[in-house]
């Protein structure tokens, strides 16, 4: 790990207006909090995509892969689509910084894209359930489509953490997992390395040679390097064939698993992406008898389970809330709109 502990300690850390979990309530589910998070990084990583990083409050349980947060699109008036918070999934967490990948699609993400580093963003986090960890002897497939790759990068990096923690002992190959990422075209594929280089250059130009580097420089760069490492290990699929496999991420996964067959070992599938992709993987998992964990996207109002606005139709009848029953659902739980 590159950064020293002293560098981390000087990052502005958000303060909580209500205390985090105490030993008295540690047995309860991890708590969510509303806080103002200093944004330390908000840079373009590919065409129309940006990566956000902010520092995490002390005393608040760090997010785990699959979880999300909501942000208040500050700077937008209620009359300009600024009435509701917007959800974003965590793409990485490390060294006191949380990262999220987002696509500039509407007014709220435009406002976020314009948000200056150094400002404080009004957040509620961590929210939702998470991807359960795989069993040690399972072969793991991770599939991310479009902007849905964020949570898969985080999940993949958490396996990496397992490897690092167990350094010295033999690492089961299944612990790494095969990561498949699908994009429209090559221009959409993020480059965290290039983003890091551009950011360094910007900071040098802004600060001048005499100024000290920002205290969070090392944690940001280390996070970007970890994200790039995950991305570099991924099998890439593009709809137009401009890079990697030509076709969908599901096709890429099918082709690969056909080559590695016969599969004697148990497999487990993790996915996040558009509904047709989740629908196809849900069906595939059923056919193979594999457990699958599929992360859904839906419009939300409260994000905490109160308003019942973000529901998805459940296979068993009724509806499930994307925010509080999900966003990660097991195979067979949701009637996906394919």
């Amino acid at each position: 790990m590159a950064p020293g502990a002293s560098a981390v300690a000087t990052i502005p850390v958000p303060k909580l207006d209500r205390p985090g979990p105490s030993p008295d309530n540690a047995d309860k589910k991890p708590m969510m909090r509303q806080f103002n998070a200093p944004v330390v990084f908000n840079q373009v990583v590919s065409q129309g995509w940006k990566l956000l990083a902010f520092s995490w409050p002390e005393g608040l349980t760090p997010p785990i892969p699959g979880q999300f947060f909501t942000f208040n699109p500050q700077g937008l008036q209620a009359g300009e689509a600024g009435l509701l918070r917007r959800p974003l999934a965590f793409a990485f967490f490390g060294r006191g910084l949380a990262f999220a990948l987002y696509q500039i699609r509407g007014k709220a993400t435009q406002a976020l894209a314009a948000f200056a580093e150094g400002g404080s963003l009004d957040l509620i986090a961590p929210l939702g359930n998470s991807f359960p960890q795989p069993l040690a002897d399972e072969q793991v497939f991770l599939a991310g489509g479009g902007i849905g790759i964020g949570p898969l990068l985080y999940l993949r990096s958490s396996f990496h953490g397992v490897e690092a923690a167990g350094a010295g002992v033999s690492i089961l190959p299944s612990r790494t997992g095969k990561l498949f990422l699908g994009f429209r075209s090559a221009s959409q594929i993020p480059s965290f390395t290039l983003a890091a280089e551009r950011w360094e250059k910007q900071n040098q130009e802004a600060n001048g040679a005499a100024r000290h580097p920002k205290p969070y420089r090392q944690p940001v760069l280390a996070g970007l390097a970890d994200l790039q490492l995950c991305l570099d290990q991924a099998f890439i699929a593009t709809d137009d064939g401009s890079k990697g496999f030509k076709g969908t991420v599901v096709d890429a996964l099918l082709q690969d698993s056909a080559q590695t067959a016969p599969i004697a070992t148990a497999t487990r599938i993790y996915a996040c992406g558009p509904a047709p992709m989740l629908s196809a993987l849900d069906a595939l998992a059923l056919e193979r008898g594999s457990p699958a964990h599929l992360s859904a996207e839906q419009w939300m109002a409260c994000g905490v389970g109160a308003c019942q606005g973000c529901v998805l139709p459940a296979r068993a009848g009724g509806y499930l809330r994307a925010c509080a029953d999900g966003p990660v659902f097991p195979q067979g739980a949701i009637l996906w709109k394919a």
Binding site: Q77, A81, C307
Partner: peptide, 11 residues
């Protein structure tokens, strides 16, 4: 669903 849509100054 969909059960929600944001409109100008409204939901």
């Amino acid at each position: 669903p969909p059960r929600l849509v944001e409109t100008p100054s409204g939901l």
